[in-house]
Design a protein around this nucleic acid. Structure first.
Lengths: 329, 329
DNA sequence: ATGAAAAATGAAATCGATTACATTTTCATA
DNA sequence: TATGAAAATGTAATCGATTTCATTTTTCAT
């Protein structure tokens, strides 16, 4: 495995010249350049990023923190991040935290140890205080989920408004007994989506019934199924459910199917995220679409800007209510 | 951001001593050790992996090549890899190739440039010749999908046998007109699964009908839907379908649903992979389960062994036919 | 107290690149 | 042809760790 010294020797020039050829910017006489390129080819030389990175004090790696890889919601975001990163010569380290602080810390260490230049955090469970401290020394962007007011730039959608629209849609098609299948309120998105739910109900003078609001520990089919079981056991059963995640909604649909309850006639269902699978269910799922790919590219661009020392501002992207069979027989 | 020099100065020792304290192995007087540790704490020192990696000529990063992140089949494998990697102080760089050689090459470059120590390839589209060449100089493990006979260790299941069992199951419950929804035969798994299909039919004296074998360009719901449309248009319609991926099978189910064809009564369906979704469909999907998590941990361990210079042998893991509603009314 | 062996520590080379600064070469012009 | 500016190239420091080998300190039996 040749190094730059050997290339220099082979080409009969100094390492500086080889480096200049490598990086293209500086002027090198075309004859010299040719000699160097030949030497590179002959020796099958590939510049080591280890050396380059040390010298440049950068790793050109960005850390992506996600709670779990199992939620397809993250797919498109990751693709967006990856493409933007790649186009600017960054690679991405995908880190699944399982929403556990210990695992989070392992990954934070990678930044502290210069193995990664910055972080795009999508983990709603992230310890916000740790994140804030870290952000003082390192470049961090929040994507999708965020803690406001801590000075870390984020890109997201207006969850409150999206939720409001989803619930309003249910009300407008005639529902008044609407359940909310939420996740833990320690997550900002959970709080916001609840707020939107409450606002929509309030606007139509519908009282908020505590029993209609369920909390799931995690996002996953099973949790949606369980929550739906509880809803079905309610004495005054709701006629509609708004779930804060497609995964929950799909689990709910499954449970409704099993119970022989017709969707949307007996129970309407709305999800959130528009994951691919939400169009494969029977009936297909009404849901909120987020511009995930775009969110990813923007997050990556923001991080790169931040790393360049530029000022970056938070971004709120548009969302869209996608009406499908689960709310329109 | 302190470096080892400053710690040494602060502690009144040499950098060698600090390094020894850092790495624990060498004997350092406990008094000295304490001084150093205090200095580390005072300066908030974190050793830079850039320096360490350059010196050690390793990056402690392993590359995971997957065709697309959108197939949940990879979830558990990735988790397995990640956990094993983490436990041995490796990080994983997740790389989506989209089965495009250009993208593949970008990632291969990371290995050539020492940004990654080795590769776990799960990409069936990977250029096998490139991979073989690369394997001469770098550590590579094939996971799930593999090219045999090129001397690169792999961990996988017996796809031919799994496919044989799936089709045999369909035959045993009474089907004789069985379609195969395959993907491109450039992939080894596609060839093997077809072979298993053919063997099962042959065993029962059922002729192979070319029209019953469909090829999809990719694995994805839409492709399953399209293929099912073609099957439904067949003059002598099959009564069962074996799809080589759950994604295809789920798309097929969707299409059957839309066409008002009852599963399994009018058409039985078998998938492959046992992704989470496969239990959420209506009806639930009969499928082949692979020990994905285990496959991941083994692949990671194999790569680490390879990096250590040890001899590693290929592994074939068990699979299991999971019979659910789509084949048992 | 002495000396040899063992333990602890330090000096300096090394990994492989980039780059500031110094030096040499080129080349147009007087 | 001599001269000076511009262009090309080289020298050597640097990034931040690890590690070999040399040196110093400690330990302990005599």
């Amino acid at each position: 495995m040749a190094n730059i010294q050997q290339v220099a020797k082979q080409a009969g020039v100094s390492v500086a010249t080889v480096s200049r050829v490598l990086n293209g910017q500086n002027k090198v006489a075309s004859k010299t350049k040719q000699k160097v390129e030949e030497a590179i080819k002959e020796l099958n030389y590939e510049p080591s990023m280890l050396g380059r990175n040390l010298r440049n004090s950068e790793s050109r790696i960005m850390l992506i923190l996600i709670p779990t890889i199992s939620n397809p919601f993250y797919f498109e975001i990751i693709k967006g991040i990856e493409n933007m990163a790649l186009s600017q010569n960054y690679s991405i380290l995908l880190c699944e935290t399982d929403s556990k602080p210990e695992k989070e810390d392992i990954y934070f260490d990678l930044v502290r140890k210069k193995m990664a230049d910055g972080i795009i955090s999508m983990d709603p469970a992230v310890n916000i205080e740790t994140l804030r401290e870290l952000a003082e020394k390192y470049a961090i962007i929040q994507c999708s989920e965020y803690g406001g007011g801590i000075g870390i730039p984020y890109v997201t959608i207006d969850s409150e408004e999206a939720s409001y629209r989803a619930v309003k849609h249910l009300i407008q098609i005639g529902h008044r007994k609407i359940a909310l299948m939420n996740s833990d309120e320690k997550f900002s998105y959970a709080r916001e989506r609840k707020a939107g739910y409450v606002r929509a109900l309030a606007e139509y003078g519908i009282p908020v019934i505590d029993d209609y609001i369920l909390y799931t520990q995690q996002l996953g089919f099973e949790y949606g199924q369980q929550a739906m079981k509880k809803i079905l056991a309610l004495p005054d059963r709701p006629t509609a459910v708004f779930a804060v995640s497609d995964l929950l909604a799909i689990g709910a649909l499954k449970e409704l199917n099993a119970a022989g309850i017709h969707v949307p006639n007996d129970m309407a269902v709305v999800g959130f995220d528009k994951i691919d699978f939400s169009n494969m269910t029977n009936p297909t799922l009404t849901t909120i679409a987020q511009p995930m790919y775009k969110m990813g590219t923007i997050a990556a661009q923001m991080l790169i800007d931040l790393l360049r020392g530029e000022q970056v501002d938070s971004v709120v992207l548009e969302h869209e209510l996608i009406i499908r069979e689960s709310t329109s027989g």
